[in-house]
Simulated scan of single mutants.
Amino acid sequence: MNESNQSHLLRYLTSRNALETILFPIVIYSLLFWSLGAGWAVIGTAAYGVCVALIREENSSISVVLLLLFSGGFHYAFSKGFTPLGISEESVFLSVTSALTTIVVFSVYSIINRPIIRVLAESGMPQLKSLPIHGTRLYNRVWHEVSLVWIIATIFKLLAVLVCYKEGLNSMDFLVFLFSWPYTLALIAFSVKWPKKRWQHDV
């Protein structure tokens, strides 16, 4: 990722929108999970999401909160003995369920013509709405392309983790790690670079 893309990403990650919709929900969920358990983490994150949605004019926080709620709900179910597909390792279970959650939530938002990445990007970088291309068919199509890449990549992640687990791969911890932060950062970098490249090329 070049310096320009890095600066755009850094500006977004330090923006008020990113703090409220990404950082704060994750911190709230993590603190409640480690102090009070998965059940309270889900309740606390849900309460935060409702409050933010009521206060803010835009509801971009809902998408991130939904991802956390579904993942937290699965985690809570696992702690109570829910082990579908015969998955007994917690890290593998969380990797699989987070992938399922991402696929479902991203797909639903794409179907209703509000790709999550576009919603978050426009909230964090309002200048996107002032671009001459904003609102055009190409502008919307590019965000759907980004969303589709996230969905396809996550389906690949889901299948890879499941197949490797069923085959008894010894290095599952490394695979799960690879599909966590490195995988997410790669997709974020793509989400920053791809729209700019497509708009410059096709306009």
Results as ranks from 00 to 15, higher is better:
3 E>A: 13
6 Q>M: 11
7 S>V: 08
10 L>C: 05
13 L>S: 14
13 L>W: 10
14 T>I: 08
15 S>P: 01
17 N>G: 15
23 L>C: 10
23 L>N: 04
24 F>E: 03
25 P>N: 06
27 V>L: 12
29 Y>R: 01
32 L>P: 01
37 G>R: 01
37 G>E: 01
38 A>H: 05
40 W>R: 01
40 W>Q: 03
43 I>Q: 00
47 A>D: 00
48 Y>W: 04
48 Y>G: 02
48 Y>F: 05
49 G>K: 02
49 G>T: 08
52 V>D: 03
53 A>D: 09
56 R>L: 04
56 R>E: 11
58 E>K: 15
59 N>T: 14
68 L>W: 10
70 F>S: 02
73 G>F: 03
75 H>V: 05
78 F>E: 04
79 S>F: 05
81 G>H: 12
82 F>C: 02
82 F>E: 06
82 F>Y: 14
83 T>H: 12
83 T>C: 02
86 G>L: 01
90 E>M: 13
95 S>I: 05
99 A>G: 13
100 L>W: 09
105 V>S: 06
108 V>T: 09
108 V>P: 00
109 Y>G: 07
110 S>N: 15
110 S>Y: 13
115 P>R: 08
120 L>A: 12
122 E>R: 10
123 S>T: 08
124 G>H: 04
125 M>C: 08
126 P>T: 09
127 Q>M: 09
131 L>S: 11
132 P>C: 11
132 P>G: 11
132 P>T: 14
133 I>V: 12
133 I>S: 07
133 I>C: 05
135 G>H: 06
137 R>P: 00
141 R>K: 14
142 V>I: 05
142 V>M: 02
143 W>H: 12
144 H>Y: 08
144 H>C: 04
145 E>L: 13
146 V>P: 00
146 V>W: 02
148 L>C: 09
148 L>E: 04
149 V>W: 08
151 I>N: 06
152 I>Q: 05
152 I>T: 11
153 A>L: 07
156 F>M: 08
161 V>T: 12
164 C>W: 11
166 K>D: 09
167 E>H: 12
169 L>Q: 13
172 M>D: 09
173 D>N: 15
173 D>L: 07
177 F>Y: 15
179 F>P: 02
179 F>K: 07
183 Y>E: 11
183 Y>A: 14
184 T>S: 13
186 A>E: 02
187 L>W: 07
187 L>F: 08
188 I>Y: 10
189 A>S: 11
192 V>I: 15
192 V>L: 05
192 V>A: 11
193 K>S: 15
193 K>F: 12
199 W>Y: 15
199 W>N: 04
200 Q>P: 00
200 Q>E: 14
